[in-house]
């Protein structure tokens, strides 16, 4: 017989501390990325991926719907793939993914960097990384 769960419900845990908020952000941003990835997947199938792209190409597009990711496929015309809708989708995915990913890196770094000074440096570097990656990513998405 399975042991009774001793885990608290989300309501009982509370969402007051920064760490708890980021814990929730990590889970909810993962779900947000799933929604955007499935949206990209459905969009690719509607725009003709089934006949002109292989599975790996479709996955590459779904994980980042940027037109440069379908340039090496057999698509006769990639104009619909570069529409503002897909640029907005890619931008949303980029912002969520960078926030999710950089926070994940901070969590891993905290397991190995235990001094207050070290952790402060990690947080400054993570802030720089978030801003630079989002800036570069948005530039690439909107100029491609």
């Amino acid at each position: 017989m399975a042991a009774k769960s001793r885990n608290l419900s989300i309501a009982k845990r509370g969402l007051m501390s920064f760490e708890t908020i980021m814990w929730a952000f990590t889970r909810l941003s993962a779900l947000g990325m799933y929604v955007l990835i499935i949206f990209g997947l459905i969009g690719a199938l509607i725009m003709g991926a089934r006949r002109n792209m292989n599975f790996a190409d479709v996955m590459r597009w779904a994980f980042m719907p940027n037109v440069t990711h379908v340039e090496n496929t057999n698509l006769p015309d990639t104009t619909p793939w570069a529409s503002p809708l897909w640029k907005l989708t890619a931008s949303a995915l980029l912002v969520i993914a960078v926030g999710h990913g950089v926070h994940g890196l901070v969590v891993i770094a905290d397991d190995y960097i235990v001094t207050a000074r070290g952790r402060q440096i990690v947080r400054i570097l993570s802030g720089v990384m978030i801003l630079s990656m989002i800036g570069i990513g948005l530039y690439l998405i909107w100029t491609s």
Binding site: A2, A3, K4, S5, N7, L8, S9, I10, R27
Partner: peptide
């Protein structure tokens, strides 16, 4: 599993 903690048993 985190959003539905009762499932952690499984």
């Amino acid at each position: 599993l985190d959003l539905f903690p009762k499932l952690i048993e499984y």
